[in-house]
């Protein structure tokens, strides 16, 4: 199978993720969309690694996973504490930082 197809898939996943971040309000869904974008990137990295025949992309993919895991921890903690204090998981409600 042509590896380029994986790239199309990665692009499709990334787009879905990006659109989800932009249009969804539920913080959990937005978070999942972010994860989707990260994984789309991972897929693209691995694909390129395969296409070019070196391991750099795969190593980067592992780094991405570590960073994503750390980010999930912090992000979920923030979401939970926001939910606790405001009883809402909508990102539009958490707009107190504006002037």
């Amino acid at each position: 199978m042509n590896p380029v197809n994986y790239l199309y898939l990665a692009a499709l996943l990334f787009t879905i993720g990006a659109v989800g971040v932009l249009i969804r309000r539920n913080a959990i869904v937005v978070f999942m969309c972010v994860e989707l974008m990260l994984n789309a990137c991972n897929l693209a990295f691995v694909t390129f690694s395969r296409m070019h025949g070196n391991l750099d992309g795969q190593i980067i993919a592992f780094f991405t996973m570590v960073v994503a895991a750390a980010e999930v921890v912090v992000g979920l903690a923030i979401i939970v504490s926001v939910f606790r204090s405001r009883h809402s998981a909508s990102v539009d409600d958490a707009s107190l930082m504006k002037l």
């Binding site: 932009l22 309000r25 937005v30 990102v91 539009d92 707009s95 107190l96 504006k98 002037l99």
Partner: peptide, 10 residues
């Protein structure tokens, strides 16, 4: 700076 995360994302 409207405070909406989504507009920052855009």
């Amino acid at each position: 700076q409207n405070g909406y995360v989504r507009s920052y994302a855009v």
